[in-house]
Amino acid sequence: MNIIRQTKWTLLELFPEQKETEAAAEETAWNNALAAEAEARAEAAAKDKESVEGETPLDQIEAEMSSIDLIEKGKADSSPEQTEPPPVYDPETHDVPFSEIPEGPRADGVLVVKYASRGVHIDVQCSPEQVVESARLLDQAGFCLESISGVDWIKEEQMEVVYDYNRTDGQFCRVAVRVRIPRAEPLVPTVSDIYAGANWHERETHEFFGIKFEGHPCLEPLLLPEDADFHPLLKDFTP
């Protein structure tokens, strides 16, 4: 079982509803992907054939001759591509399929996203109550916390906190856990008792955005002056 699938199912513990339907969804996604692949292959084969037909007569004759050779040779066993059974989805060997990204504001849940464009493998959105539980699950799975970033979505009147997790044991899997909170009352429980390194990251996010991390031992400004009562990264901040 590869690490991305393993982490995905670990994190699905947080979302029992998604967990129930996920196995079936994974299989459908894979079958769709396999079907698309088969179609693409058939199309490519058709294109090849067309290009062979379009070639000069000499090439055509050569191609025909070789195809005759093939037919003669392959009378007993027809070409391997045709006999190969259609690929079947197998959760043990195949990679985890990418989740479908829904349009508009997303619901809580686990998504498997494309690393090439997003820089993470697994993208989780959860409620503030689930933040500590997600950190605990990832801590037990051997992840380290790389950074915490805040985002001010002033138009939606929301704040977002993104936790970036990574592994340093040689297995390659990056996880982003994001939580949306109302802008008027930004409250998230602290994960600093699970990850000691979160202490400074949370202090930084608190001073820049005014997001309060409940249970944090010391939410004093870290980088700003000690008497700073402003939050410079808010979109409506004016110096």
């Binding site: 051997g142 380290c144 916390l145 790389e146 950074s147 340093t168 990850y195 000691a196 390194g197």
Partner: peptide, 12 residues
């Protein structure tokens, strides 16, 4: 300690 604090590079 490195994992809990997210230390990387030559320290790790």
């Amino acid at each position: 300690t490195c994992r809990k604090y997210g230390a990387t590079g030559p320290v790790l």
